[in-house]
């Protein structure tokens, strides 16, 4: 079963007088439970592709399918609903809502989904324990380290059990030890929850965790490597 399918995606941005091709006829398929890294230098198109898959950005042309549903032609409201129900996001920074505690951040998506309070509490407790933040539930983001904050973001992304987690440079602001811990957590969650992970990164240490590595350059896919075979 295919978790994500992109067909001939094109996206061009205007930067001053120049047109920048962020996506240039990109087509990929990502299987369910996949663990994929999109790798590219800055401006290579990996974040644009991630945003297109997540319904945050609409391509100029081409088609995007998530869990078999075409999403590039959905309304803003329908895209928001899709992101709420099916996709978890982990961003590079500014990942958490600063006025909420770790637990409240984790419960945020579930709360918007309308999950009952007791159910939310049970799930957030379990997931925070799973990501190693037991005892820090009532801390606000400002009272936690960068690594702990990213763990909360991961916990939030997977708490409502989305079929797909999209992570954009999740380790960019973390030291190497914390980066490794986070990637091990991703691997663990991928293996145990069968969640599909698509991670945009240019960090080599992150790439080695992926089972599949897609390299991009100037908006095009230049390499697609099955790292298990390698």
């Amino acid at each position: 079963m295919t978790a994500v399918r992109c067909v001939d995606l094109c996206k061009t941005y205007c930067q001053g007088d120049q047109d920048i091709k962020a996506l240039d006829h990109v087509s990929i398929e990502i299987a369910e439970s996949g663990f994929v890294c999109l790798s590219a230098p800055s401006g290579g198109g990996k974040t644009t592709l991630l945003n297109a898959i997540g319904g945050l950005d609409i391509p100029d042309s081409g088609e995007v399918y998530v869990a078999g549903q075409r999403i590039d032609n959905l309304s803003k409201g329908a895209l928001a609903e899709l992101r709420l129900r099916q996709i978890g996001f982990v961003f590079q920074a500014y990942n958490l809502i600063p006025v909420l505690t770790a637990r409240e951040n984790v419960e945020f998506v579930m709360q918007v989904q309308g999950v009952a309070a007791a159910d939310r509490h049970e799930k957030s407790t379990a997931i925070l324990k799973e990501v190693g933040l037991e005892g820090l539930e009532d801390r606000r983001p400002a009272e936690m380290s960068g690594g702990q904050q990213q763990r909360v973001a991961v916990a939030r992304a997977i708490a409502s059990k989305p079929s797909l987690v999209l992570a954009d440079e999740p380790t960019a602001n973390l030291d190497s030890k914390t980066s490794d811990e986070l990637m091990e957590l991703f691997t663990h969650l991928n293996e145990h929850h069968k969640t599909t992970f698509v991670i945009a990164t240019h960090d080599r240490r992150v790439m080695k965790y992926a089972r599949r590595l897609i390299r991009m350059l100037d908006g095009r896919i230049v390499d697609d490597i099955d790292q298990r075979a390698a």
């Binding site: 803003k76 992101r83 129900r85 945020f108 998506v109 918007v112």
Partner: peptide, 9 residues
């Protein structure tokens, strides 16, 4: 961030 997470406008 809230919009990205699925909160409606």
């Amino acid at each position: 961030l809230m919009l990205a997470l699925g909160m409606k406008p």
